[in-house]
Design a protein around this nucleic acid. Structure first.
Lengths: 132, 132
DNA sequence: TATTGTTATACTCTATAACTATA
DNA sequence: TATAGTTATAGAGTATAACAATA
């Protein structure tokens, strides 16, 4: 039995590991997989992406470059602001993003399988309280 | 209210962010800080370090190189196996490792401050169950 | 032969600073 | 002037493959 912060750190390591493994299975880096997961719900602008992933805009430029080079996303000019782009998954990108996302969820579900339904709900609620 | 896997991923992002911020405050990269935290309890061999941090041995060589160059750790030859090294914190390293570790713990405690004592205990136990 | 660790190489990831184009 | 994004540069992080030294 450890203290709460230590348990939080260990949980983070577990999630990071799962994310790395799944990404690798799909021949993506964890950063590339994370970027693509951010785009599943729909196109996102560069500025919003840098905020979501807490990266400098130049870092995001490079990350998008490499994923675009693989044909997984496209830069689409914003119709309202001609300086801006919206980053959008391609068809291949949608497939890979969904598979990656599902892979992570499935593996985390598997890790949590030892919990009862009540424990799952309690854990979800408690995590939510910390994350607010 | 979201599902459990999503809450786990968000928790991981929070911890990663805290780790990145604290590392930066101490002029370390998150990887360097993580390495040094592994050494707080005492010297660790390269092989064990690669296992703990899930890195290839060549990656660990480079990581140790950069931290050693800053005078925070030392390679000490193992007395039993003359191929092996034990990686050991220097005096400066001990100070910085402890400060980083405490910084992370303190910030995570702060994030969990909204929980009651019972909720803290419950969350810690539930996380422990998933981590087994 | 097997193991411990390093070196060489080639990427990816990241930030800072300077830049271009549009608002 | 301010904002959205890129480019240039430098360093850190990572894996694969080949290597040296010891077991």
């Amino acid at each position: 039995m450890t203290d709460l912060p230590t348990a939080m750190v260990r949980m983070a390591h577990l999630v990071n590991h799962v994310f790395a493994e799944v990404s690798r299975d799909h021949d993506l880096t964890p950063q590339q997989a994370q970027l693509m997961c951010q785009l599943i719900a729909g196109p996102v602008g560069m500025g919003e992406l840098t905020r979501l992933m807490r990266l400098e805009k130049s870092s995001m430029s490079g990350l998008v470059d490499r994923v675009e080079r693989r044909g997984l996303v496209e830069r689409v000019r914003d119709t309202c602001d001609r300086r801006a782009y919206r980053i959008e998954l391609t068809e291949d990108g949608v497939r890979l993003a969904n598979k990656s996302h599902e892979g992570v969820i499935a593996e985390l579900e598997r890790r949590a399988a030892s919990l009862t339904d009540e424990e799952r709900d309690a854990l979800t609620a408690l995590l939510g309280k910390v994350l607010d």
